[in-house]
Computed example of a mutant assay.
Amino acid sequence: MATTYISYLRVSTDRQGAAGLGIEAQREAVQRYVACVGGNLLAEHVEVETGRSATRPILLQSIAQCRRDRAVLLIARLDRLARSVSFIASLIDSGVEFVAVDNPAANKPMLQMLAVFGEYERDQIAARTKAALSAAKARGVVLGANGKVLAASHKAAAETFAETLRGPVQEAFENGAKTLKDVAWHLNEAGLTTSQGSRWSPQSTHRIVHRLGLRTAAMTA
């Protein structure tokens, strides 16, 4: 009889979750494993959570379904499950069988050891980062300065671009434009594009009109 699996996929941030970053690679690894062993993938659970978090509602749902359906919890990589030794230990104590695709032959003691090394690596990275930041600060480096310079550069470029459109935007108003859609139509008719080379929309037009300080309060899309 084929083994039934419940897969658990995890990404660390909302941004990654929205973009699907990391999920597809995990899903493919899980599907390859299930096909290789001739198993049956009953369900898939996806969670957006940090590795440090001790509360994972989707993981708990996955475990509960494994118990209910007598399934094996399947993950692509051990570090997707947790980097906490105590967390791995508590999962093992729950009695639910689970398999890490990147090391399917690992027994319980080996999984605990892998978790130990993962937790150690995480702590070492955090310590090195903290030491590097402290050393940079001691040398007089203003942390975040590059980001401020880059933001100022982007702002200056946006203001310069907006000024090139002051004449066409004012001309649109003089020709009867009442809404942002009207202004966008005039800019598109003039063959002008956004800084990204796209056609004008009410949203992109609003940013330019606002930056130029022209009639933003009473205008609508």
Score class of each variant (00 low, 15 high):
Val169Gln: 04
Gln170Ile: 03
Glu189Cys: 13
Gly197Asn: 12
Ala172Lys: 00
Trp185Gly: 10
Phe173Asn: 04
Lys181Thr: 14
Gly167Ala: 15
Ala177Ile: 05
Val169Arg: 02
Asp182Trp: 03
Thr160Val: 11
Ala156Pro: 02
Asn175Phe: 07
Gly191Phe: 03
Glu189Leu: 10
Thr179Gly: 03
Glu189Thr: 15
Gly167Glu: 15
Leu165Phe: 06
Ala190Asn: 11
Ala158Tyr: 01
Leu187Thr: 08
Ala156Ser: 10
Arg199Ser: 11
Ser195Glu: 13
Ala184Cys: 07
Glu163Gly: 02
Gly176Cys: 09
Arg166Asn: 08
Asp182Gln: 00
Glu171Gly: 13
Arg199Val: 13
Lys178Asp: 12
Glu174His: 11
Glu163Asn: 07
Ser198Phe: 13
Glu174Ile: 14
Asp182His: 05
Phe173Asp: 01
Leu180Met: 05
Thr193Ile: 10
Gln196Ile: 05
Glu171His: 11
Phe161Pro: 02
Ala156Cys: 02
Ala177Lys: 02
Thr179Cys: 00
Thr160Asn: 12
Thr164Met: 13
Leu180Lys: 00
Ala157Arg: 13
Arg199Ala: 11
Gln196Val: 08
Lys181Gln: 12
Thr193Ser: 05
Phe161Cys: 06
Ala184Tyr: 03
Arg166Ser: 10
Glu174Asn: 14
Asn175Ile: 04
Asp182Val: 04
Thr164Asp: 11
Lys181Phe: 05
Phe161Trp: 15
Glu163Thr: 10
Thr179Lys: 01
Gly197Ser: 09
Lys181Tyr: 03
Val183Tyr: 07
Ala190Cys: 09
Trp185Gln: 15
Thr194Gly: 08
Leu187His: 07
Thr179Ser: 00
Thr164Tyr: 09
Ala190Ile: 08
Thr194Asn: 09
Ala162Pro: 00
Pro168Ser: 07
Ala162Tyr: 00
Arg166Asp: 07
Ala184Gly: 08
Gln170Val: 10
Ala162Arg: 00
Gln170Leu: 13
Leu192Ser: 02
Leu165Thr: 06
Thr179Asp: 03
Asn188Pro: 08
His186Met: 06
Thr194Phe: 08
Leu187Arg: 09
Arg166Glu: 12
Gly191Ser: 03
Phe173Glu: 03
His186Gly: 06
Arg199Gln: 13
Ala172Cys: 06
Ala172Ile: 03
Gly197Val: 15
Leu192Ile: 15
Gly197Lys: 10
Phe173Arg: 04
His186Asp: 06
Leu192Pro: 04
Ala162Trp: 00
Ala190Leu: 14
Gly176Leu: 04
Gly197Gln: 11
Leu165Ile: 07
Leu180Gly: 01
Leu180Cys: 08
Phe161Glu: 14
Asn175Ser: 11
Val169His: 02
Leu165Tyr: 05
Asn175Glu: 14
Leu192Tyr: 01
Leu187Trp: 11
Ala156Lys: 09
Ser195Lys: 09
Gln170Phe: 05
Ser198Thr: 11
Ala177Pro: 01
Val183Glu: 05
His186Arg: 11
Gln196Ser: 15
Pro168Asp: 06
Ala184Val: 10
Glu171Lys: 13
Leu165Cys: 07
Ser195Thr: 11
Ala177Leu: 01
Gly197Tyr: 12
Ser195Gly: 09
Gln196Arg: 12
Lys178Val: 14
